[in-house]
Lab assay of single mutants.
Amino acid sequence: MGMPNRKYADGEVVMGRWPGSVLYYEVQVTSYDDASHLYTVKYKDGTELALKESDIRLQS
């Protein structure tokens, strides 16, 4: 078993793309699913969504 190939840690605050949009919002990573390679993130309004790594970026 190798290390999970994840870029962002639980609790890390990053920018997540809103689905169907080009806009990124501040989100907190809450979990990562090794099987689906999706991150569960929480937006400031409390919305929780699963995002692909390509829809997440570090805060500038």
Rank of each mutant, 00 (worst) to 15 (best):
M1P: 15
M1T: 15
M1D: 15
G2I: 08
G2V: 08
G2M: 06
G2C: 08
G2E: 14
M3Y: 14
M3T: 15
M3V: 15
M3K: 15
M3P: 15
M3N: 15
M3E: 14
P4Q: 12
P4K: 08
N5H: 06
R6V: 03
R6N: 04
R6G: 03
R6K: 05
R6T: 03
Y8T: 01
Y8S: 01
A9F: 10
D10S: 06
D10W: 03
G11W: 05
G11D: 04
E12C: 08
E12Q: 15
E12V: 08
V14E: 00
V14D: 01
M15Q: 08
G16I: 15
R17F: 03
R17V: 04
W18M: 09
W18Q: 07
G20H: 07
G20Q: 06
G20S: 05
G20M: 07
S21A: 07
V22T: 14
L23E: 12
Y24M: 06
Y25H: 09
E26P: 11
E26A: 10
E26S: 09
V27D: 00
V27Q: 00
Q28C: 11
Q28V: 15
V29A: 00
V29T: 01
T30G: 04
S31V: 03
S31P: 00
S31M: 07
S31L: 04
S31A: 12
S31F: 08
Y32M: 01
D34W: 09
D34S: 11
A35Q: 13
S36G: 06
S36Q: 10
H37S: 12
L38A: 05
L38I: 10
T40S: 08
V41F: 01
V41N: 00
V41D: 00
K42L: 12
K42I: 12
K42N: 04
K42S: 07
K42G: 02
K44T: 08
K44W: 13
K44C: 11
D45F: 05
G46V: 03
G46S: 05
T47M: 07
T47I: 09
T47E: 04
E48G: 03
E48T: 14
E48P: 04
L49E: 03
L49C: 09
L49Q: 07
A50S: 13
L51S: 01
L51H: 01
L51N: 00
L51I: 10
L51V: 06
L51T: 02
K52R: 13
K52L: 12
K52P: 13
K52F: 11
E53F: 05
E53I: 04
S54Y: 08
S54F: 08
S54P: 05
I56G: 01
I56F: 03
I56S: 01
R57I: 11
R57A: 09
L58Q: 13
L58T: 14
L58V: 13
Q59E: 10
S60C: 14
S60Q: 12
